[in-house]
Write a protein that binds this DNA or RNA. Structure first.
Lengths: 87, 87
DNA sequence: TATATTTGTGTATTATAATAAACAATAAAA
DNA sequence: TTTTATTGTTTATTATAATACACAAATATA
């Protein structure tokens, strides 16, 4: 039970993932901001684990082709709930 | 290729999932809002697919014990990126 | 080394998410 | 049907995410 993932942990990890994906595409924060038509400062804050809006997070996820995965994951959670309700 | 999941799709699905989880615990929007110390209006808007902040989404996810899953999923994506970079 | 690029920070302003309160519209229970 | 609870919606206010701009600090490149 090395559990207890906090909200802060998730936000930091989201930022890390953004940074890693961005760098794998050899994009600067400026490049990504331009591509998504949002400010570099928003990217900057997000990559450093600060709070953000869902729209910002999903724009970034979309740009790195993670939207389908996310959507499917949500559907799976929903489905697993349905299954549990049968027992 | 019945692809093309949109940002709106994901937001709607997030709202649906919140509603389903909440109802599976037999909580009203008011109950959930109280438990998370946020306003019912914020829950209301989120469940109907409106934009929200990451903090709001993660508070809700945390209440339904989805934070570990989410964190692990993010780690997995990060790791799959590392693997690709080896080829 | 110097130069260019990228990232981190600061300040002020704008846009909007969150809040609070009330009330109407449904839905569920008596 | 009447209550009762829940959900949807409106308005006004507050809190804060997002923007724009500049500049310093750190990295990378010539």
């Amino acid at each position: 039970m090395i559990d207890a993932v906090t909200i802060k942990d998730v936000k930091l990890q989201l930022g890390e993932l953004c940074k890693q994906k961005r760098q794998s595409y050899e994009m600067s924060q400026e490049d990504l901001a331009e591509a998504l038509d949002i400010s570099r400062y928003t990217i900057q804050k997000f990559e450093n684990g600060k709070n953000a809006t869902l729209d910002t997070v999903l724009k970034i996820a979309n740009h790195f082709d993670l939207l389908n995965n996310l959507y499917q994951a949500l559907k799976d959670i929903e489905k697993s709930n349905d299954i549990n309700s049968l027992y």
